[in-house]
Every structure is written in C-alpha cells, then in structure tokens.
Design a protein around this nucleic acid. Sequence first.
DNA 1: AAAGATAGTGTGAAGTGTACAATAACCAGT
DNA 2: ACTGGTTATTGTACACTTCACACTATCTTT
Lengths: 239, 239
Amino acid sequence: MAQPQKSFDAYFKSAFTVDNVIFGFDNGQLKILLIRRNEAPFDNYWGLPGYFVREGEDLDAAAQRVLREVTGLKDVYLEQVKAFGTPGRHDFGRVITIAYYSLVKVEDFELHAAGVAQEVAWHSVSDIESLAFDHEEIVQVAFHRLKRSIRSRPIGFELLPPAFTLTDLQHLYEAIWELDLEKRNFRKKILSMNLLKDLGRSQKGVAHRPAKLYSFDEGRYRELEEDGFNFELKEGKRK
Amino acid sequence: MAQPQKSFDAYFKSAFTVDNVIFGFDNGQLKILLIRRNEAPFDNYWGLPGYFVREGEDLDAAAQRVLREVTGLKDVYLEQVKAFGTPGRHDFGRVITIAYYSLVKVEDFELHAAGVAQEVAWHSVSDIESLAFDHEEIVQVAFHRLKRSIRSRPIGFELLPPAFTLTDLQHLYEAIWELDLEKRNFRKKILSMNLLKDLGRSQKGVAHRPAKLYSFDEGRYRELEEDGFNFELKEGKRK
DNA sequence: AAAGATAGTGTGAAGTGTACAATAACCAGT
DNA sequence: ACTGGTTATTGTACACTTCACACTATCTTT
C-alpha cells in the first residue's frame, strides 16, 4: 500500500459483508435458504447466509464461500444484486453488505448447519418475516431481480434437475412470476427457441401419460447467442 | 454501537466510495461526465466523479452529493449499478466502490471544477480510455445496464429537455443502443403507449417541416403502470 | 374395460413487428 | 410566388406472434 495518507485514515473504519439469497425450487414452490443465527447481533433470528468478506478476498469469491459453507456446493450460478449500506443497519459499526442471489438444485445437497448457522432450512418466499438486519428488504430486492432476469436469460434451468419436463419448467416460471401461464403457448414459445434437448426418455410410473424429459442445451444457447439471438419470455396476464 | 466485540475489530479496516457514471445526451451523442483528478492515487488521470462515503451518510445520498458537487444539480435520476471490490483496486487499502449511474439534462447546468476535480468535461462513451482505478470497467457495466434499463423503463426522458421531438427521442435510443431504428415503427410504438403529451407547439426556424414537441407525461405513466402496463421497447436489428 | 389424470397437438382470430412509400410543411434562393 | 432541399408525418400490406380454447394421446388404477 503506497502512502496511506494520514487524512484518509478516518475512512478506513468500515466493514463489509456478503449476503446470499439462495433460491431453490422444490415441489412446485420457490424457496429461499435461511439460517438461524447463533451469534450477536440478532442472535437466534432467521437471516440470510452471509459473513464478513475476508482481507484480500474478492466479493464474488466471498459469496461463493458463504454458499459452499451452507450447501457444500461450488461453481453455482451467482449474481450480484445490490449493495445495502444504510447507516445503522448493523450494531457493530458501519457495515455495508453486498447482496447476491444464487440458484441451486435442491436435490444436489443435504443441508447442514455450520459457522454462524445453528440451523438451516428452506423457507417459502411468500412467508418470510422478521429476518435479521435488513434481510427482508434484501430478499425482496433479490426476488424482484430474479423475476426480471429469468425473462431475458435462460437461468431458470439452474433451479431444475438436469432432466425435466416442460410442465416442470412451466411451474417454475409460474412460481417465480406468481401467475398462471397458458400451457399451449408456453410450450410453443419455449420449444421454438431450440434451447432444449429432447432426451428421448420419459417419466416412469406416473398415473397418466408420461411426459418427455428435456435438458437445457447450453452449447446451443451459446451458438444462438452469437448469432444475435435473445432469450426472452413474456409474463402474460392471469392470476 | 453495542458490544463491538474484540474479534470483529479486524474487519473494520475498510473504506468505501461511490462512483457515479453521469450520462448526458448532447448533439445526438451519448456522453459521460469525467473529471481530471488532482490527488493521489491516479493524480492527473481522468476518472469518474466519486469520493469516500462519509460516516453516517447513506449510499444513495453520497452518490447524489458527488453529483451535486460536479453539476450543481439535485434530485436527479440515480440508479445503483454494482459494487466493485477486487482486492488491490485501490492503493490505500481495501476500498469497495459502489457504482451508480445518473441521467442528466446537459443544458441544465454549467460544468465547474470542484473537490478532487481540477477539470470536468463530457466525453463520448465510445472513446473512453485509461481511466483511474477500474473506472473503465465501471463505465462499461453502467453503460450496459443503461442499455437494458431504457428498454423497460421510461427513463430516456431524463436525458432530454422537457420538450422534445420524436426524432430527438429516436436519436437518443439509437445512440444508447448503437443501432439504427426504423422511423415509422419507432413512432408508432412510442405513441401507442400514450405516454407522451402533445404540447401543441412545434420547432421554430428549422429549414424543413417543423416537428411537433412532446413531453413525457409522468402522471399518465403512473396511472398506466397501476393497470399493469409495462413499458417495453425492443432493440430491432440493423447497423 | 372404464375412469382419472396429465401430456401433447391443431387452429383461427387478434394483435405486433417490419418494410417501404407517399404526402406535408418549412426555409432559402431565385 | 415558385422551386428545390430537407425533415416530419402518415398509410398500408405482409409476415409473424400471441392468445384462447378444444381435442387427442398415453399411462395407471380399479
């Protein structure tokens, strides 16, 4: 560090954290992973997984670390949402938090408590309340961001297993957008994009006509993207 | 501050700043307001207006303050872009910057040097180079964000004078999206949204048929928004 | 074999996007 | 006053997409 001039010292008194809104899709519902804290402040409150960023640690890396601590996963879809820094949001001093959201496949891991977390659990987005710090606001902003992002980027697949049905995909969109979509039109639209690979397999043992299984064809997406293709879904009406 | 436990002290050694990418639209071109710094680090480099956030100062407020110092304006359109915090991006220690962009009307003020700035000037977005810190990256990210935002929110008007022609508006979109739009279709689309108030006046003294002047009808927009209306423009092809 | 359930398909009407062309209004110079 | 130059504004036909609804297919269970 070159000449840390005396006059600037006063500014180097803050801390910053990352908080990660981890979304999962389970049983037709959009969920968020919360931890029950076991340290001050907000001891015993539910809140977002997050912690102070370490010296020399990049922000994205810190968010990934937090995610790994709770889920054991790495290389997960991650997007920065926004910095929250209202003075007084943290008891210990001036603490800015950089909020992220990530998308994980719920069946990829088992939950296990760790670090600040004495308990970890999935919560429905719709009944989130009394979280630590300003985490409720962060969840709202992240959720809103997710709603927009899945319109213009094929990231919904990050929440689904590698093989899924068109109905699964539709339910995912319906859960995130909080509305109902028209089956026929949704299918036509998504299939017309040529982003899904028909796996040639079907569901087994369901008490009705089995649905075909698809996977997201990432290579294909990159090809199309280079040709100027834009993924884009509309939120219709209804609900 | 309640119990700032000893073990957390080590985290309270960072500083954070705000940097503001101030966009203006002048003469058919999208411009960014840059300052030439007169203090270390990067003394004498061009860079974004920005400074350390003060103790007890909200992030948004800090961004507004920085903007006011350079332009004299307040209550300007402001949007947070992203936090940049790569370790080593600042010589004095760990410094996170929260990047914002704002949209101003260039004719609303005179530029005047102040604070860290020994010189202030508009620069074309297209020829930005060798800025202080990671400001080039910040500009790119902010520009990219602007491109997306003007698609789905009626914020382009923030860059235009209170009365403008449809052609002005089209040129604005063309400058931001860096492509050409089809006149007829652009007009039809924008007029069909019913967001423009026909001022009943026209240009004066132009050597051709004078264009009608419009203003953005913000009240109308809020009404429509409540009815579920969504502002949405597409980037067509071309260029 | 019938009932129950969800998957997958056809289709017409309405609405939008696209491309091009024709007409209108103003200034400057003759 | 008339003409040319220049930009504004409007008409319209065709292609493509969205929307709404109904019908057929396939599998399990009883």
